[in-house]
């Protein structure tokens, strides 16, 4: 049971295990858009081919009452096996991958490579005037990296969105 009305919004990472069938992603997205909930990030991929299961990780924000609604609404979708609020259920590891393209020459080019080293980003493509860096980490680390690249010739970013898993021995 949640408390009384709370005006504060919180960011929650929710893992949803679903049957990998046509339309299931549309159901989840339609639920968020139809009911006016936020999606900050959403990832989906098959995780158990034999059982035909996909895992959706959705990062959303809302008041405690809204977050509770989102979980209840997700749970009642027919092809949904399980809904776990990783933010509420205890420690979880969150990661995101980004590909970051930086174009430039001279001092800026050297500086971008130096910062990439600090962030342990890999260089996955290089021309005389550009790099593509691959960086993995929490979303805030990626945000920080992108911010630093901005004045150094940032031209393009592609992010996967958050994937997350609970710490410890238990499955979802």
């Amino acid at each position: 049971m949640t408390g009384k009305h709370q005006p504060h919004t919180h960011r929650h990472t929710i893992a949803v295990l679903v049957d990998n069938e046509p339309g299931v992603l549309a159901r989840v997205i339609g639920l968020f858009s139809g009911r006016g909930y936020n999606i900050e990030s959403l990832t989906v991929a098959e995780v158990a081919a034999r059982d035909n299961l996909s895992r959706i990780t959705v990062v959303t924000s809302g008041t405690a009452q809204i977050i509770e609604q989102i979980k209840a609404q997700l749970s009642r979708l027919v092809p949904v096996h399980k809904v776990v609020d990783l933010t509420n259920e205890g420690p979880a590891v969150e990661r995101e991958l980004a590909l970051v393209k930086v174009a430039g020459i001279g001092e800026k080019r050297v500086e971008s490579l130096r910062i990439a080293g600090i962030f342990r980003a890999h260089t996955v493509d290089s021309t005389n005037e550009s790099f593509v860096f691959e960086i993995v980490g929490r979303s805030d680390k990626i945000d920080a990296f992108i911010n630093l690249m901005e004045p150094l010739g940032l031209v393009d970013v592609s992010r996967t969105g958050v994937v997350a898993i609970a710490r410890g021995t238990q499955p979802l």
Partner: peptide
């Protein structure tokens, strides 16, 4: 019977 009806419009004490 529908968990999403609980606390949707009105917050309740004993669902």
């Amino acid at each position: 019977i529908d968990p999403s009806s609980i606390n949707k419009n009105v917050v309740v004490d004993i669902p």
